[in-house]
Amino acid sequence: MTCSHFMALLDGFIDGEIETAISDEMQHHLRECNDCSNEYASALRLKKTLADMTVPDPGNEYWQETTDIIMARTVGADSSQPHNAETVSDKRAFVRSMLSLAASLLILFTAMLLGAGQDGQSILLNPPSAEVVHPSSINQDSVPMQQGVFAPTDDQTRLLRGTLLLASPGAPGLATAMARMGVGVNPTSDKK
């Protein structure tokens, strides 16, 4: 075995990865060659020193604290934000409340118009010669939007009733859904 051949196999030799036949040849070369013997001793010493490199033990208290911090930064940060399933249900709640708001508006206007029909007056306007409006005949012509902006006391009462109709159930549902979806609220930022 030549010195260069020995040196090429030195790493494998000290890591115990060389097959027996070649390893025997290397042992033989070591007994005969001073240079390779010195290189081998130096490599072995380095390997042993590296293997002995210790790390100070930070202690149980450190481990408990660090594990808690990691859990807070991961699982904790995740649970403070809505999960996907919740987001979907919140979206559904939002759609539901929008539909119920639309239904409330429809009921309000129908109620206002019906009320106006019973009193023989339109709620949205107060023309002196307003005709009796039957629900089935409500159209743009019988409710001229351009005339009159002030509603008299009776009409204000009807407006109030309509507003109450409007408020339930759409508005609270909408407000809740918007709050749960975080509309207007800053999402929890990921802390370092």
């Binding site: 790390v55 100070p56 930070p58 450190y62 660090t66 990691i70 930064r73 991961t74």
Partner: peptide, 22 residues
């Protein structure tokens, strides 16, 4: 600790590694 040589850096590596894994 072996790569960076200090407790503070080793602590940083532990935390960041597991946060990234998560």
């Amino acid at each position: 600790y072996q790569i960076l040589g200090s407790h503070l850096d080793a602590d940083d590596v532990v935390q960041e590694t597991f946060v990234r894994i998560y």
